[in-house]
Design a binder for these strands. Structure first.
Lengths: 199, 199
DNA sequence: CAATACATACCGACCGGTCGGTATATTATG
DNA sequence: CATAATATACCGACCGGTCGGTATGTATTG
């Protein structure tokens, strides 16, 4: 096996263990030493792969956001009408919830840091605005194709994003409190009842 | 001035400055020393009033939650029909957003800690479940009085809370990105369009 | 004088990051 | 093909500094 490949594996192990540590204890609470211990590397090895603790954190953030992007793209492409697309996204969300079970605290960690650190903020706010724009485009398309009522697309998009984010948070605080994927579908359903043109 | 009164003022100053510090820098990033400096007290003084940093944090949390309770109670009492009550709460939210402007990161800090610390979690989850129950009761009442469609009250309540929480988060990440109070009203409006019985 | 409300001085643990060094793989050279 | 030169991957001791918390002193008040 090439050293290059081995290095990639080490790097991946660090990322994986770091994600677990951050999710469990929080960014500040977990030290580099602990991550190194769990990943089977020493501090020297760690700082060979990452210039700082924050850089490691940012890489985790970007990987997560990249995954979300792909999920959303796929859901939209696979649908014919706009309400259909939204419903499919809601269904996808169920899978996201399932996959993200113990990791949601990590996402909360992202947001918490974003509120303070300008660099993290930039990395967070940019895709978040992208999502809002995507949904605004979707709502606009829905209005154009006549399947949605002529609401303010910007506002509607904000509401949709808010619903998704809010459910993520509830899922974090009370993971066993409900089938959050189902609640997401129900929520989108209620929103669509108010948005769809068919009364 | 009595010493008792002076002590209360010192205590209040510590709480106030601590809230500002936590909101600005985050729980972990700000040290006791900084809070003391800004409050014009020394460490000895601080630990005379609070047994620990976490105790201070919990007191701030409880004060915030208590305030929310009162706002919601008032909104419900002042309305005749259920949709009316929800709309009024949405309007109140606008005021909450305004008042909480720079403090929302602090609330995020609460949630972030709640995901980890069992004590903070208990203090957070309990009123949060209370809110969900309140909204479930409201939706049930709305169905009973015939102003809302017969949806699952539990789910509807979860959706409402999710919307509120999500908007809080958006308001934190991008305070100047929108008039979040207005978006809240719009969101409740859309939800009600889907929930109200009038088609 | 007793109790309250602070101030001062200090402790020990810990943490992010650095640095000199080593072992192994890769490449260049003769 | 052998070997020298270099780059990569990683080690682990160490450092400056910070932080939550404590022990003890002192001034004020009832």
């Amino acid at each position: 096996m090439t050293t290059q490949h081995r290095a990639e594996e080490t790097r991946a192990r660090i990322l994986q263990e770091a994600a677990a540590c951050f999710a469990q204890y929080g960014y500040d609470a977990v030290g580099i030493a602990e991550i190194c211990r769990r990943a089977g590397v020493t501090k020297g090895g760690f700082y060979h792969h990452f210039p700082s603790k924050q850089a490691l954190f940012l890489e985790l953030l970007n990987r997560w956001l990249g995954g979300l992007d792909m999920q959303m793209e796929a859901a939209r492409r696979g649908a014919t009408t706009i309400p259909e697309a939204l419903r499919q996204m809601a269904s996808k969300a169920q899978y996201v919830f399932e996959a993200a079970k113990g990791q949601i605290p990590l996402y909360l960690e992202f947001w918490s840091k974003a509120a303070r650190d300008p660099v993290v903020w930039q990395a967070t706010i940019e895709p978040y605005r992208r999502y809002r724009d995507v949904f605004r485009g979707i709502v606009e398309a829905g209005i154009a194709e006549g399947s949605l009522q002529p609401v303010d697309p910007e506002r509607a998009a904000q509401v949709i994003v808010a619903l998704a984010v809010g459910l993520l948070l509830q899922g974090m605080l009370d993971p066993e409190g409900a089938n959050w994927g189902e609640v997401m579908k129900e929520g989108i359903q209620i929103l669509l009842s108010g948005l769809e043109k068919e009364c």
